[in-house]
Computed example of a mutant assay.
Amino acid sequence: MNIHALRLFYYVAETGSVTKAAVRLNISQPAVTSQIKKFEKELGMPLFNPQGRGISLTSFGAELAKQAGNFFTYEEQIEAFVEDYRAGRKGKLRIAATYLPANFLVPGWAARFKAGHPEIEMVITTTNSQLAFEQLKRHEADVAFYGGGAEEKPDDIDWLELFEDELWFVVAPSHPYANCTVTLPEMMLEPFIMREEGSSTRARLVSLCTAYGLKPPQVTLQFSGLGEVIRSVMSGYGANFISSLAVREFVERKQLARVRVEGIRLKNNIAICTRRNESLTAALQQFIEICRTPAPEM
């Protein structure tokens, strides 16, 4: 069907005048009349009843005008949706985040973003670094938030570093090493409570031991979440190697204690990761800008 001719017919039917339709469309009246006659021939049915002045729709013409009105209204809705999506007012953001940013950073950023983008759907998945990168590469996520070592950076990922925080060894306040300085070999003799394999921090601990020619510590308890790890160490058993962002508050409240290890000072990179050479949607660009901007109370 000739959509341009359907539009001409709809405007004639809506305005009740070929002249008014021509003015609205900014074309000549004879051109409107000619194209509608061709349209009637294409359809094989008359759209207007012959009469002197004014127009009178046939029953088919009246029903077609109604259907055309629905069609063009829907077309306007689609155009509005495209414009809203282009401007970042509508759409969906799929976020994969490793445990550190997922627990301590992304919730605040998401709340600030949603306050100004109520019609954007946000789906946030908490996972380890390996799976976060896989979701990003498989287009199952639009962005990944990573907390870990920069050496894990994949070659096909764009990496925007937000800031760094320290990695700490922590124990319960009652532990013999609490608030003490020990050697790395001494620390590695302690039982450790860690997250599952695939965790960036656990991989950093293994790499640290390898660099110093030491056997990695025995992981005697393993959890899939940070909260469980922290609470287990607070209960008095074992040690943990963890981001200061996750435990600083507990250390300040003396629910956990740091153990300083001679010559060891490692940093965690907090980064936003996106697929290389791929344009970002307006909504994602606006969300990333919020993540880069300190909150008003900070």
Rank of each mutant, 00 (worst) to 15 (best):
C291D: 06
A178Y: 01
E76R: 15
S235Q: 13
E297H: 13
L208M: 12
T15I: 05
G16N: 04
T220N: 09
Y85H: 07
E140C: 11
P296R: 02
R94N: 08
E228D: 13
R275D: 03
H117L: 02
I95A: 04
G91C: 11
R138L: 14
Y146P: 10
V229L: 12
Q51S: 14
A295C: 00
A21K: 00
F145T: 01
F39I: 01
E289F: 04
A80E: 13
P216D: 00
N128F: 12
S235A: 15
Q29R: 09
S207H: 13
K114F: 02
A178F: 03
K153I: 14
A111W: 14
S243T: 00
H139T: 04
W109G: 03
G227W: 13
T58R: 03
I95Q: 03
R253I: 04
E278M: 10
G16L: 08
I78E: 12
L8R: 14
F39V: 01
E151Y: 15
R258C: 12
R265E: 12
E262A: 13
E278Y: 05
S56W: 01
E196K: 14
G91E: 12
P118G: 08
S199P: 05
Q218V: 13
V143A: 01
P217M: 03
L167E: 10
V106C: 12
V123S: 02
V170D: 01
G88D: 08
R89I: 11
G236N: 00
V229H: 00
E14W: 15
K20C: 00
P101W: 06
F81I: 07
F145H: 02
I78S: 06
D158Y: 09
P216E: 00
L100Y: 07
V229I: 11
L100H: 06
P173Y: 03
Y74R: 12
N128G: 07
P101H: 05
E249F: 13
R89N: 14
V247A: 10
G238Q: 01
F72T: 03
L266K: 09
L266T: 06
A239I: 06
A203G: 07
